[in-house]
Design a protein around this nucleic acid. Structure first.
Lengths: 139, 139
DNA sequence: ATACTGCGTTTTCATTGAAAGCATAATTCA
DNA sequence: TGAATTATGCTTTCAATGAAAACGCAGTAT
């Protein structure tokens, strides 16, 4: 299951994408509209900024806005950034690989199956973007 | 990512399935061969027993053994039992459904995508069994 | 200059994961 | 019957993580 943090990240991104105007949006506004604890949200938005997905402006008229186009932000990227590995085991992860003790991966039936799961999952999460999930939200 | 507990559960099940002989196997033997903390393993095996997957016998010559055939134990069942929901969000889970606040699921782009992920995942985890992953392990 | 707004650092609190300890119940075998 | 063997039940512990709250600093517009 995705953590609260990741869920909040998606809600914030969807909100920004739906507002559509390129104008900066206040953290406080996102927090209120999406009922996210404001200090927690600050953290999340900062991570998204450091990853190059969002950018921000301080002072009056400041706030957060997209640095990349929402249609360029793949869901897999957001999940890896906020949540961590997508795979179900470390020894199956592409981006966070770690060898698992006590199992020879070449012949481990479990990791073979979980690789299939990973690939099926990634095929979806790498093809869908923030723009996709924001559009459906508006319907 | 799957918890240690779930990984241990799979290791134990694979070990039992590979031994093949219907004879009871000591908790201590599984714990040693698979380097699993013994008291933790006791708990796990007990859960598997309560779920009807394994059975046990006390006293000399006792231990754990399969109650169902390994080829009847789907991976999805084990994960749901030990780990919990397979879906990435509660509002997308079949077996552990919970409504999520602040989002109308019918029109939520995120939950729509995560439903696709869930279905792709389940298609694999519902079709593979303990027997499958145990066989590959022996190759 | 000052109000506004994001940034940084630290602390807290509750929950969960991952065990360890110890006593009890069932079974076998001598 | 009794002792050894093995699983079961119940409680406690310990560390890590998730989810925040507190407080103050830094940049920007007017």
């Amino acid at each position: 299951m995705l953590s609260m943090k990741t869920q909040y990240a998606f809600k914030a991104l969807m909100y920004l994408a739906q507002k559509d105007t390129g104008e900066p949006v206040l953290i406080a506004e996102i927090a209120e509209k999406k009922t996210i604890p404001i200090k927690f949200l600050e953290n999340i938005l900062l991570e998204l900024k450091k990853a190059g997905i969002l950018d921000s402006k301080k002072g009056k008229g400041g706030g957060y806005f997209f640095n990349q186009r929402p249609s360029d932000v793949r869901l897999a990227k957001v999940i890896r950034l906020i949540e961590g590995p997508i795979a179900l085991l470390p020894c199956v992860s592409l981006n966070f690989y770690q060898k698992c003790k006590n199992c020879d991966e070449r012949h481990c039936g479990l990791s073979n199956v979980l690789k299939e799961v990973r690939d099926a999952t990634l095929q979806i999460l790498e093809s869908k973007t923030v723009a996709d999930i924001a559009m459906l939200g508006v319907v």
